[in-house]
Design a protein around this nucleic acid. Structure first.
Lengths: 191, 191
DNA sequence: CAGTAATTTCACTAATTACTGAAATTACAA
DNA sequence: TTGTAATTTCAGTAATTAGTGAAATTACTG
């Protein structure tokens, strides 16, 4: 037994499996609008049980300490990481929520904020003082606006769905229809 | 009356309104994983009724002909544009589908393909030969995999929802729950 | 408040991605 | 075929974004 017993021991290096996934999420980062670094940091926090400090992240992923700092800052701005502290240790430790659905809900709301809301505002502003001369463009904008509002409603509904409900849905293999039944019934009897 | 009567006359320059929106969509392109050029071209095709050829796009947005060509190619690879031809004119003309929901469905499926499916495949591959020693990482991967499969099901369901149904939902101001009711009932009686 | 560990900021460099004009290709018409 | 209009490709350049190390800041300890 080693003497480095903090809490649920952080690895000194990654298993091939975790390493492969971390690299994959780094690549996927591009498609998700975040950079490689941030993608890798996040995957690391997801697949490693122990909370990690910046130094550990930096050495496990081998990029600079300052880069890790910026990555964590970005993840924090997305509300995607949880900061913890160990007694007698002043370093910041980071983890992610325990269940996927919590993570996904955060992602959905954040993406909505970044990808939808600015456009919704823009459309609204232009629609108020639009001259009826530009018939076609205006009706297109109106449709788009209404549609985006609908998406906002949908994501609000989703946000109300608990992890326990979702868990059950997964086991049932249920499609969208069942999900919506769940949301409309409100919270269920399970913990 | 001018003699440039093709079909629903392409403008020689953009109205301030359309221009503003085109610029906005160019900016948003970043957040949506496409570049400014592609975002602007797409917005242009959405807000201008007439199908446009590459030359027109290039002059309305003032970037190079070759850039337009690459942008259209990318949009085509996402299945987001419709190519048309006018009798006696060999140039290619481009438009987008008439209704927002058609566009959105395409976007949903395409984003799924680019943002989810590669990871789903990766997870599946790693999960088959995972050593049970790495308990934690594996269960995280399994959860993530199951969740992503669920999203695939949801988006499949959405894809089955018709524009007419959606249109009605918007008018009702309905949230996710109503949507799912619609999908489970199948097609409705409206045209 | 002096000392030190941890973190953040920032100017710089590296790497990537976007855009262009020229050349090549394609598609059709005479 | 040959000619010509339209489109695409591509090598080079411009612009943007990512990543680093050194310096500055913050936060805690004695």
């Amino acid at each position: 037994m080693s003497d480095t017993t903090t809490i649920s021991a952080a690895p000194e290096q990654l298993s091939p499996l975790t390493h492969a996934l971390v690299l994959h999420f780094g690549e996927m980062g591009n498609r998700w609008g975040i950079n490689r670094t941030v993608g890798q940091i996040y995957a690391l926090l997801v697949f490693v049980e122990a909370p990690l400090n910046a130094e550990q992240i930096s050495s496990l992923l081998s990029f600079s300490r300052s880069n890790v700092s910026m990555g964590l800052k970005e993840l924090a701005s997305w509300d995607l990481v949880i900061m913890k502290h160990l007694p007698g240790d002043r370093r910041d430790y980071f983890t992610v929520p325990e269940d996927v659905w919590e993570i996904a809900k955060t992602l959905i709301l954040q993406r909505r904020k970044r990808e939808l809301e600015p456009t919704l505002t823009e459309l609204r502003n232009h629609l108020v003082d639009a001259s009826p001369a530009e018939d076609y463009a205006i009706s297109r904008m109106q449709e788009m606006h209404d549609f985006m509002e609908l998406i906002v409603q949908w994501t609000d509904d989703m946000d109300r769905l608990s992890s326990a409900d979702l868990d059950r849905l997964i086991k049932l293999g249920a499609g969208v229809n069942k999900v919506l039944d769940f949301t409309r019934r409100g919270k269920t009897e399970s913990g």
